[in-house]
Simulated assay, not measured.
Amino acid sequence: MAGELPEEALAKLEQASFRVIERKDLAALGTRIIRLAAPRRLSTRAAVEQVRAEAPSATIDFDHYYGLRVAARSRPRKIKGAGEGQPPDPAGFPVGVIDTAVTAHPALGAARIVAWPRGARDGDATASGKDAQHGTAVASILAARGAATIYTANIFRGSAGRPFTSIDIVADALEWMLGNDVPVINMSLAGPRNAILDRLVAAAGLRGRMIVAAAGNSGPAAPPVFPAALPGVIAVTAVDRDGRIYRYANRGTYIAVAATGVDVTAAQAGGGVARFTGTSFATPVVSAILARCRARQGSPKDCAERLKASAHDLGKPGFDDTFGYGLVG
């Protein structure tokens, strides 16, 4: 993929048997990206290097795949005999969720769900059962904390057990979020660093959007995951109700804050409620705090500072690689 590829460079690449798969003019993000197919004679890595050599000023990278499992490790545990949850206050705030589909559920109460029309399943923006499990749970946590309108972008495809997405789909979802003036965007995907994703996240930040992302569930020794570890993104780790760190949570200097994400009660797609564990179930707690702050006319900088100031210090005194600035929510 290439961001802001000059036309003269593109023409030379086409002469060298590169083929344009798709052009994306992302007006809300203020950028353009092009998906290229490499000539058969070149490996993918060699093709990327050739494009970089032809257009050194452009942003060039692979169209990486991103998963959900790194952000949501364990399976939900259904709670027998539990209620559906209390409906939220409809006089709340707007917030965005880039995740799986979100299906109708009583725990969403009066929250208005606005689904991305395109989705990632051939135009089907709704789903049920396991395909909507993760997104529905995250949305219900936001609704329970006062979200009045939840913009949902279903970016995942593949089987319910191994959902995946790619940078080009994430780009479209971010463009849609910005086009709807969503101030805070909750993201649960996780994967490698990608120059195109860097550019898109930076563009969203320059336009006053706040991105909150799950810190990852690959364990204390795991490398950083993205987009959580990107500059400007608020990375959230998970603790249990006693303030103990989730044992599979990633660690690192990119961790901003911690929130409860172990055995969290949330909506289960298809009915009922269950207990969910993972950093992606702590993330909506922080997204809700920031979205409420933004709804009260707080700037991104002010809201981020208030979040840090409100955190209850855990672990070593001051900022640390395990809890960030501490527990919020």
Rank of each mutant, 00 (worst) to 15 (best):
G216F: 01
P220F: 11
N250P: 05
Q297T: 09
L10M: 04
G123I: 12
D321P: 04
R275W: 08
V273M: 15
V70A: 13
G146R: 04
A266F: 06
S57M: 14
M1G: 08
G129P: 00
V285T: 15
S128D: 13
R32W: 12
G271Y: 11
V97E: 09
H312G: 10
S140P: 06
V328G: 03
L307G: 04
G318A: 10
G324W: 02
M1N: 07
I245F: 08
T165P: 02
A2K: 04
V233Q: 02
A110Q: 12
G216K: 03
A229L: 00
A309K: 14
F164R: 08
R121I: 08
P224H: 03
G83A: 10
T103C: 14
I211W: 00
V48P: 03
S17W: 10
C303D: 03
K308Y: 10
G92A: 01
G161Q: 14
P39H: 08
K308E: 07
P284L: 09
A91R: 14
R247K: 10
V264L: 10
F319G: 01
S166Q: 15
A137E: 01
A153R: 01
A110K: 12
A173T: 00
A213Q: 00
V97M: 08
I196R: 02
R77C: 11
A143E: 05
A295R: 13
L29R: 11
V102P: 04
A148R: 12
A266I: 11
P90Q: 12
A309G: 09
G252T: 09
K78V: 15
H312M: 14
V286Y: 00
E8L: 13
G205P: 00
R241E: 15
M177Y: 02
A27P: 00
R35Q: 13
I255T: 05
V97F: 05
G232W: 05
P117L: 08
S57F: 07
G326E: 09
G109P: 03
R73V: 15
Q86D: 12
A71K: 03
L197F: 05
L197Q: 11
I98G: 01
I79H: 04
W116N: 11
D172N: 10
R292I: 03
I34A: 06
D198R: 04
Q133I: 09
T237A: 10
V328T: 08
I98W: 00
G278P: 04
D181T: 12
G179V: 09
I196C: 02
F226K: 09
